[in-house]
Design a protein around this nucleic acid. Structure first.
Length: 554
RNA sequence: GGAUCUGUGGCUUAGCCUGGAUAUAGCGCCGGGCUUCUAACCCGGAUGUCGAGGGUUCGAAUCCCUCCAGGUCCGCCA
């Protein structure tokens, strides 16, 4: 709908001006679309922008009127306002289940996100990765892409060696009711303390690192047990957050099946390979001062080598690769991309997000200095439960718990996704526990209100005629949903969808207050009910795409 | 020191890629609104050198340069 209107305007402007770029943009408060071509034409035509705007307006007004688009020019600005037909088409489309779905796109996209090391629970920094990645995955799916979402499990790193050592040499019993990943973190922190106190322990860690690479059965089993324990806990947290993965890929698989050795051999043969003591890639041609080390002098591999093998494998199975990584991986990520390019392999696209820190400084699993995702979810759920029980005393405890769970996860996810990813943030409990405007509960609440109206209304005959300012503004915002999905897919910035959802809820609430629905006279009532249904359906689709439950009552 | 991201009212934040009409919204502050479809709501008001300085342009929060401040990275860790 929007695209059709956009193209009609663009074509009309091109025909009238002959310009290659007609500088069409968002009209803001003034219009649905606005063009500033008159300014650029002023130079070549040696006339004032105002005169040109008037001439262009005269030429395009009639053809666009046939499309139901009116041209309102003020000074040099040529403004376009979409008419009744557009609004009616939007409301009609938005009433259908699955509104916003874009046409299927061929090929399969692999989205890798979270991939936190299995040495402790996910903390509030990790879940920024999860929420950005999962929201993106949902948007891609909605935008017609076939996707495969992966979690890359670093199951043979140094920290796992440390954890396995801790399990073997420290006697740390699991606490009553303690989640497995939290237990693993305690062992990891304690083992690190021990390592600091007695550096000779490092020898045993190194020994395990060597054995894991050789596939020593006993060490493999020890590592596997520790990693599984932690990963199961992480999965529980991801599940609570509505973040599903299609598969967990174990890093060690690429060592066992020989693919890592194969890729190292290929890398070794490249002219950029450096063999002084270690195997490393010289990436100065790409602007990197530091070499990209792939194999230690003792012959064992480093993370980068396994990562390379993983990405080669992904490239063989998927058409497009997208990784979500923290800003601390910027250098290593760019080096991976450069090396993949040298190898002639598919180069992954990487989405970086900046750090989440605590008011007292950076988080650290090793130092035990972090707020876990579980703790955050628990606190937010507690607050949500208090809210719902005071607001809805008539509901059963079970109903209240269900609503609180949905509200809490929504609040956590929205609080993260609403901020653009290149902004570093400081975790703030007050903000996390705020359920007012610019929060998921606010959007969920708008949806619940719409549901309530529809429930009370019962059956009605759809009427696609809207007239008040609030009605039109709401309908036009509904019409932007597919546009926003396209923007997110193009720019890989999921926060646009969060902002859109908030604006949609704002406009619904404004409409709710200015235009009564159930009490309106017959014809108007049906038209408004039709709009409410479209809004409810759109809010539901948007929330679902954000991974937030579109609850019908709260 | 080098790389990179960020800097928008007291706080948080959109817009920046693709330059245009009074810079987006929330929190907090001030004032209003529940016998009315769910007040987790709505309406109104005050609050801005868009980090600083130069440049490009008819026009700069937006593009370029310099500087300042903060985050992140610069390991034979992952």
């Amino acid at each position: 709908m929007y695209q059709d209107a956009y193209r009609a305007v663009e074509t009309a402007l091109k025909d009238a001006t002959g310009a290659a770029d007609v500088l069409l943009g968002d009209g803001g408060d003034h219009a649905d679309l606005a063009s500033t071509v008159a300014f650029t034409l002023a130079k070549t035509q040696r006339k004032s922008p105002m005169v040109i705007a008037a001439e262009v307006t005269a030429a395009i007004t009639e053809p666009l009127a046939e499309e139901g688009i009116s041209v309102i020019t003020t000074g040099p600005y040529i403004n376009f306002i979409f008419g009744q037909k557009y609004v009616a088409d939007v409301v009609k489309a938005a009433s259908q289940p699955g509104y916003g779905d874009l046409p299927d796109v061929p090929g399969q996209v692999c989205i890798e996100h979270t991939s936190a090391n299995p040495n402790g629970p996910l903390h509030v920094g990790h879940i920024r990765n999860s929420v950005i990645g999962d929201t993106l995955a949902r948007v891609f799916r909605k935008a017609g892409h076939d996707i495969d979402v992966q979690y890359y499990l670093n199951d043979m790193g140094r920290q796992i060696a440390i954890v396995s050592w801790g399990f073997d040499f420290l006697t740390i019993p699991q606490n009553e009711g303690e989640k497995d990943d939290h237990y693993v973190a305690r062992v990891y922190v304690a083992a690190n303390h021990a390592l600091e106190a007695d550096p000779s322990i490092k020898e045993e860690i190194d020994r395990r690192m060597g054995l894991i690479e050789q596939g020593d059965p006993e060490i493999v089993e020890k590592f596997r047990r520790a990693v599984s324990l932690c990963a199961e806990g992480i999965k529980v947290t991801l599940n609570r957050l509505n973040v599903p993965h299609d598969r967990f890929v174990w890093e060690s698989g690429f060592v066992q099946d020989g693919s890592m050795t194969a890729i190292l051999n290929r890398a070794e043969a490249l002219p950029e390979a450096s063999h002084v003591d270690v195997l490393a890639m010289d990436l100065t041609a790409f602007g990197f001062e530091k070499q990209y080390v792939l194999r230690r002098s003792d012959g064992t591999s480093v993370y980068a080598a396994r990562d390379l093998a993983y990405h080669v494998w992904k490239g063989e199975h998927f058409d497009r690769l997208i990784n979500v990584l923290g800003a601390d991986h910027k250098l290593i990520g760019a080096q991976l991309q450069a090396t993949m390019k040298l190898l002639g392999e598919k180069v992954p696209e990487i989405i970086f997000f900046e750090f989440v820190s605590l008011p007292e400084g950076s988080m650290s699993t090793r130092a035990g200095k972090f707020i876990s995702a579980d703790e955050l979810i628990n606190e937010v759920t507690k607050k949500a439960f208090e809210e719902v029980t005071t607001r809805r005393p008539e509901l059963s405890e079970e109903e209240c718990r269900a609503i609180a769970a949905s509200v809490a996860i929504g609040a956590v996810r929205y609080d993260i996704v609403r901020v653009s990813q290149e902004k570093s943030t400081v975790f703030d409990w007050r903000q996390a526990l705020d359920f007012e405007r610019q929060s998921a509960p606010y959007i969920q609440y708008s949806h619940a209100r719409a549901c309530s109206i529809l429930e009370k209304a019962g059956d009605f005959t759809p009427v696609y005629e809207l007239s008040t300012e609030s009605e039109i503004a709401l309908a036009k915002q509904i019409g932007l949903f597919p546009v926003v999905l396209r923007t997110v897919v193009e720019e890989l910035h999921p926060h646009h969808l969060a902002i859109y959802a908030r604006d949609l809820a704002d406009l619904f609430n404004a409409f709710y207050h200015t235009d009564p629905v159930l009490k309106a006279e017959a014809g108007v009532r049906d038209a408004r009910l039709t709009l409410v249904r479209a809004a409810q359906n759109t809010l539901s689709e948007v929330l679902e795409t954000l991974g937030i439950d579109a609850i019908r009552s709260m």
